[in-house]
Nucleic acid binder design. Sequence first.
DNA 1: TCAATAGTTTAGAACAGTTATAAACAAGAA
DNA 2: TTCTTGTTTATAACTGTTCTAAACTATTGA
Lengths: 139, 139
Amino acid sequence: MIPIARPFARIAERLRGVGLRPTRQRLSLGRILFAKGDRHVTAEMLHDEAQADGVRVSLATVYNTLNQFTAAGLLREVAVDTGRSYFDTNTSRHHHFYDHRGRELTDIPAEGLRVQGLPRPPEGLAIDRIDVVVRLKKA
Amino acid sequence: MIPIARPFARIAERLRGVGLRPTRQRLSLGRILFAKGDRHVTAEMLHDEAQADGVRVSLATVYNTLNQFTAAGLLREVAVDTGRSYFDTNTSRHHHFYDHRGRELTDIPAEGLRVQGLPRPPEGLAIDRIDVVVRLKKA
DNA sequence: TCAATAGTTTAGAACAGTTATAAACAAGAA
DNA sequence: TTCTTGTTTATAACTGTTCTAAACTATTGA
């Protein structure tokens, strides 16, 4: 059975499953991140949102948590803008539209999108993953 | 006639052509950038290389120059790594391999590579450009 | 139930990369 | 030349992120 995304599922279990103690801060941030479907957040956005929700958590912890979640495969980092890291709650294979004016990311499902005709990677290296970023402008 | 890349061509003309005075610093940096075929440099790399070549130029000027060249279409910025900007002397349509361990970029020619099945961009926005980054790992 | 201990959080300092400031300087025009 | 305007520079400032070391807390096992 394929594990389906379950918004309010046992976040504590998920954390324990990847070897992270389910602390108050990690549970709160996990709830914010995973309760609302696919999201793209920066550390600052998540910190602000936590404050707004009345969750007391330091910016350092937000950074630690985002990095730990990413290392554990709960999040994925998206590089579209130098000088700002986006973290994506959708860790399955997919791509992005990026509106650099609104600094907004939108998912492009992997299904249906094909990248064909890639050359062989340089000697001694293999493809880790393919990121397609479709940069947008005003129509 | 299509303008072919001419390594030692009149850099001064190119600068004047985009409205930039051909100063000693811009000429030197332009020579370093455009004399050796397609390159991917960071500000720090270019600054170091200039020093090594005996060109006296401040880091601030390197940043200014990279940004001005990019705005003028002489360079293209590549976002593969947050917290570090790469500038590419190849401004034609193409894509990249990225070896994040060696922090090295390699061009993938646009010819032959096809991205198919893209969904329509969000309302009010159009595609500006498509960046494909093929991230590499040890084979 | 209660230490012991090992992992976590925190404020704040430190750091990396980049941009801003404002004074000195140099290119182009007259 | 001289004037004007654009450019360069050192340095300060700024942004996003990581580090540090002390305080704290989840878990373990007695």
